[in-house]
Structures are given as structure tokens and as C-alpha cells.
Amino acid sequence: MYTWSQFNKLIQGGLQIKNRLSAKDIKNELVQKVEELSGENVHACYQCGKCSAGCPFGKAMDLLPNQVIRLVQLGDEDALENNTIWLCASCFTCATRCPKGIDLSKVMEALRTILLRKGFDKVIVKQIDPEKISEVPQQLLVCGLRKLTC
């Protein structure tokens, strides 16, 4: 990563930036799988960032929701390796506000689903404090475990 001033110096020094994007990369297996599972067209996103601005969990995420979408657009597997997809609690704030009508909660669910179907568990049930289990409303537990365990 460069800072803006470093970047400017590089450009002034005659650096040519080559960024190659091929259709093959853009429509790789990950993109296809996400689009199939979510039913959403991730390429509709023009990175306005409205989803990230309104996301209640944004502060704790290591990638903002719009950055995850960008990675998916580029077919980058890093879209699966972040806490963002697990912090999304499907509150649909982003889906309500997206000017391009993308339901991001479906995209996040698709990314979670890819990992969950490989047998990945975000939460180990046995490690949850039994006191907490007996205290929380049943529906909270059911919902949480359906989202976070395979």
C-alpha cells in the first residue's frame, strides 16, 4: 500500500501502473457461486459506500461491506477471509439503502454458506457459556447457531 504522497511521487516519476482484469478472473468460480447462492448481481455495485456508512457493525469489521463486495466482483478469495461476513447480523439496513438494489445480506449469507457447507463452524457450541445459553431467548440461540454453525 502507498500513501497518497508516495503514490503521487511514483506517478510523477513516470511509473506506469498496469492493472489487468480479465473476464476469466471476473467471472471465476467464486463470483458464480456467490451469484448463484445470493441471487444478486454483485457487478451492479458501483462502490458508493452507502452500505458501509449505515452498517451498525462497520466499526468492528476488518473489511467494510462495500470492500467485501469489491473483492467478490474481482473474484478474490479474500472475500471469504474476514470477520465482516460473520458480523453481519442480516439487519437489512444496507439492503434497504443500496441505490443499486443489491441485497448485501444475501451476498454475506452466500459467503457464509460457502464456508459453512465446507464444514466450518464460526462458533463452537460446546464453548458457549452454559449460563448464557440458559439466559438468552430461545429464538436468539436458534438464529445465531443457524447463522454461525454448519
Binding site: W86, L87, A89, K122, K132, V136, L140, L141, C143, L148
Partner: peptide
């Protein structure tokens, strides 16, 4: 959002 089921983890 109130944090929903994230209270678990």
C-alpha cells in the same frame, strides 16, 4: 440494530 444474535459471539 440492537446487536441481535452477535451477543453470543
Amino acid at each position: 440494530c440492537c446487536g441481535s444474535y452477535q451477543i453470543i459471539d
